[in-house]
């Protein structure tokens, strides 16, 4: 019978994770009897490993989001190259004021989100909750403006699958007067709106999910769950929220601003 040879050993763990842990946490109330932070999950050695893992997880998730929206941006690019005039004409139908205000609202909400992260890092519970609430309000405002915009478009039958698909005739008249040529094929204009509703709809869905997540954060933040030692949920929701902001930063010029010149 052969015996296996290897210079492997299995020696007891040399890194006492709890020792590191105790140095980091001075407040005895945040630790349970075994010296663990209550938020530490059993399969992690310490809070730092847990934070590294969850942060990496969120970034990896955001990469999948880049690819998810990327498919839509790809479709937009190809179809715009196919139908440049129709896309520029269709873009003029959108009301620039709603897009611009919404951009400002969303950037402001990114600022308040960043501030919320800051106050969770320095452990200011009151201002953390205040800024989370503010972010939620701004996010809801964005969705409200978006809803008004959608309803205007629906009122003019400007949505894919409308019978018949139409756009606001004032814009058509203005276009024909200004450019001196007929408004492009309405079917190709409709293609712009397929992509417009696809992109803004999925973006709005992400906003709704973000607002729900912020609701949970506000609740737990109010109860004092986050501290300078443990604030990854706030930070990670922040990453998600900023990502949704970035998507809009690209959507705004691509959807609202082409064909204004």
């Amino acid at each position: 019978m052969a015996t296996r040879v290897e210079d492997s050993t299995l020696i007891p763990a040399v890194h006492d994770t709890h020792a590191n842990h105790r140095v980091a946490h001075h407040d005895p109330h945040t630790e349970d009897a075994s010296g663990h932070h209550p938020a530490l999950q059993h399969h992690f050695d310490n809070l730092e490993q847990q934070r590294d893992a969850t942060t990496l997880g969120m970034w990896t998730f955001l990469v999948t989001e880049i690819m998810f929206f990327g498919g839509l941006f790809m479709a937009y690019t190809v179809y715009r190259v196919f139908n440049p005039e129709a896309f520029e004409a269709a873009s003029r139908v959108l009301e620039i004021k709603y897009g611009a205000i919404n951009t400002a609202v969303l950037i402001a909400s990114s600022l308040t989100m960043a501030m919320a992260v800051y106050f969770s890092q320095i452990g200011n519970r009151k201002l953390l909750v205040a800024f989370l609430g503010l972010t939620m309000i701004l996010g809801t405002a964005f969705l409200g403006i978006k809803a008004i915009e959608y309803s205007h478009k629906f009122a003019h039958n400007t949505y894919p699958g409308a019978v018949p698909f139409e756009v606001d005739h004032h814009v058509v008249e203005e276009y024909e007067r200004e450019k001196g040529r007929p408004f492009p094929d309405i079917n190709r204009v409709q293609m712009f709106y397929v992509i417009y509703y696809g992109m803004t709809g999925i973006h709005a869905l992400h906003m709704v999910i973000g607002i729900i997540a912020l609701g949970f954060l506000t609740f737990y933040g109010y109860r004092g769950a986050y501290s300078p030692e443990y604030n990854s949920p706030v930070e990670l929701t922040g990453l998600y929220w900023h990502f949704v902001d970035i998507v809009w930063i690209f959507l705004f010029p691509l959807l609202y601003l082409i064909g204004r010149h």
Binding site: T60, V63, T64, F68, F69, G71, L72
Partner: peptide
């Protein structure tokens, strides 16, 4: 999986 699958998701959605 993380780089390719989202594109399938959006394609199937379209």
């Amino acid at each position: 999986m993380i780089l390719g699958t989202p594109v399938l998701a959006i394609t199937i959605s379209l």
